[in-house]
């Protein structure tokens, strides 16, 4: 269905990821180095990329930044590095999502699907963006759920709009805080926590077992699928 660039130097992982991608009908194009990846992207024109961080010639974070400056395709990080700081760095440099090894094949495919869906959708020009039953009307600053209007404060609206626009993609705490509160408040995670709570109280069926707004520990939030 889609052509996916896989950047990983380990043969066994290359084969495994190719096999997993084949389950969803994707064609994997495998390269082992960052240099090869950069040399090939123009010719290959992939629909998405899956990138390991521990590459032999360059750090994967550098590759992400270099690729993001040239392409707008979805990029997923697939790495054995599980430090929170690395995940945040990858996301802030332009990666769309992050999966740690050992990974679940189905999870990788689901994340890839969500990233491709978002990339394929017309750039969110419409006034109304949707996720599941939630409709966020950016023109009129209104939110409805299953047709029922929901009253939100301006901050709640802004946070929800950011998450819904991102689809299932994870947004880092810093990214949301900067967009909604401004650069000065990038470190004030508690502001965000309080607003997320308020949103859950208004949107979730059981706010103590949230399904819609999901937390990635130490990293950020995403809309649940």
């Amino acid at each position: 269905m889609s052509r996916i660039l896989v950047v990983d130097d380990e043969l066994a992982i290359q084969r495994l990821v190719s096999a997993v991608l084949a389950r969803d009908g994707h064609a994997a194009v495998v390269v082992g180095t960052a240099r090869a990846a950069l040399a090939e992207i123009d010719r290959l024109a992939p629909d998405a990329a899956i990138i390991d961080l521990g590459l032999p010639d360059r750090d994967g974070l550098e590759l992400i930044a270099a690729m993001r400056s040239r392409l707008s395709i979805p990029m997923l990080v697939l790495s054995a590095r599980d430090a929170t700081s690395e995940k945040i760095a990858a996301l802030d440099l332009g990666a769309d999502d992050y999966v740690t090894k050992p990974f679940d094949g189905d999870e990788l495919l689901a994340r890839l699907r969500s990233a491709l869906r978002r990339a394929g959708a017309a750039p969110a020009r419409d006034a109304v963006v949707r996720h599941k039953g939630i409709a966020v009307d950016r023109g009129r600053h209104k939110v409805s759920m299953d047709g029922r209007d929901i009253a939100l404060t301006p901050r709640e609206f802004a946070v929800l709009a950011a998450l819904v626009e991102a689809g299932g993609r994870v947004l880092t705490h810093g990214a949301i805080l900067e967009r909604v509160w401004g650069r000065a408040h990038v470190g004030d995670v508690e502001y965000l926590r309080i607003v997320i709570r308020a949103l859950r109280l208004k949107l979730e069926i059981d706010p103590s077992q949230p399904l819609l707004i999901r937390n990635e520990p130490g990293i950020g939030y995403r809309m649940g699928g």
């Binding site: 066994a12 495994l16 096999a19 054995a80 990974f103």
Partner: peptide, 18 residues
Amino acid sequence: LAHDFRSPVTVLRGELEA
């Protein structure tokens, strides 16, 4: 250590999943 263990376990899990 983390990397050297995780990679083989990843492959193992992936292949078994298939």
